[in-house]
Structures are given as C-alpha cells and as structure tokens.
C-alpha cells in the first residue's frame, strides 16, 4: 500500500469521527440531506472539471471506474459543507472563511499527495469553484427547509 492509501484511510477515520461528533449529535437528518445535496452538485460539476483536464486524481479508490477523487469530493467536501450548514451564522464572511478552509484542504492534498493533481486548476479557481457550489447548495438547502410546513399534508394519501 502506498502512502496515499494510508492518507485515504486516515481521512475516512477522521471524517467518520467528525460526522458522529458534530453532525450526528447535532441533527442527523439535516446533516445527511445537506451532504447529499452537496454531493449532487460536486458530482455534476466534477464531470466537466475532470473531462476538460482541470484536475486529475492519480491515486484513486476505484481506479478502473472513475477519474475523480471519491473520498475527497464525495465524502470530505460534503462533510465540510454539512458542518458549515449545521453551524452556520448568517454572514457572508463565514461562508468565505469556510470555503477558504476547504480550498486550503484541497491545496494541501494537491501539494503533498497524489490524491489530487491540479491541471488547469489553480488555488483561486478552486476557491471560486467551491464558492459557487457552496452558494448553489446553500440555496437548495434553504429552499428545502423553508417549505417545512409542506410535508405534513404530503403524508396523507390523496
């Protein structure tokens, strides 16, 4: 096993512990929903990003099946977004600081491991990319939770 595989396992362990400590205990349903919404958008946009060579992932979880980093983009970033949403303050500064942390995470992974390689991507493009996904996911989550009164009647059969 390569060094990068140990890093992946470490990410999974840390991620799982953070998930249990900060997401599960706060609001599991909301945590899972926000993660899934973020996953949808990052999955969709990654398709274009990796198709056009902005980033690549030399070391991958399922090397024959995909070219993007599954753990980082499908577990870690959604988890970071979920933490952001569950503990959010309604200030734009908070979002920007949080995205900067997420970008720093990407940049460190890119620099010191083979889990992520920037092609045409730079740290500021990555930052803008993440801001974009955060804003879209945030709008969708807010829309979902704003209509909180709707499901009651939806459970009654028509």
């Amino acid at each position: 096993m390569q060094k990068d595989h140990y890093i992946l396992i470490t990410l999974w362990i840390i991620g799982t512990l953070v998930f249990i400590a900060f997401v599960w205990r706060k609001d599991l349903r909301k945590g899972i929903l926000t993660m899934m919404i973020f996953q949808t958008f990052i999955w969709l946009f990654n398709m274009f990003l990796y198709q056009y060579g902005f980033e690549s992932a030399p070391v991958r979880e399922l090397p024959k099946a995909h070219e993007f980093p599954l753990t980082i983009d499908y577990f870690f970033h959604p988890l970071l977004f979920s933490l952001f949403y569950l503990y959010k303050r309604l200030k734009i500064v908070y979002l920007l600081v949080w995205v900067t942390v997420a970008t720093a995470f990407d940049v460190i992974i890119e620099k010191y491991t083979d889990l992520l390689q920037f092609g045409k991507m730079t740290w500021y493009l990555d930052w803008l990319y993440l801001v974009g996904i955060y804003v879209i996911a945030l709008i969708c989550c807010n829309l979902f939770y704003k209509n909180n009164s709707l499901p009651q009647e939806s459970w009654k059969s028509p």
Partner: peptide, 25 residues
C-alpha cells in the same frame, strides 16, 4: 410532495452512483 421526491432522488442517487462505480470496477 416535492420534498419527499427530493429526498428519494438524492438518496437513490447516492446509492446508485457508488454501487454503479463498484460494479464497473
């Protein structure tokens, strides 16, 4: 029923995306 549809969609997508990659692998 749109919120129900959204949750079903997202959860299904989560399962099929991962399992879809595993069966190809």
């Amino acid at each position: 029923k749109f919120r129900l549809a959204v949750v079903a969609f997202l959860f299904k997508q989560f399962i099929t995306s991962i399992v879809g990659l595993v069966v190809v692998q």
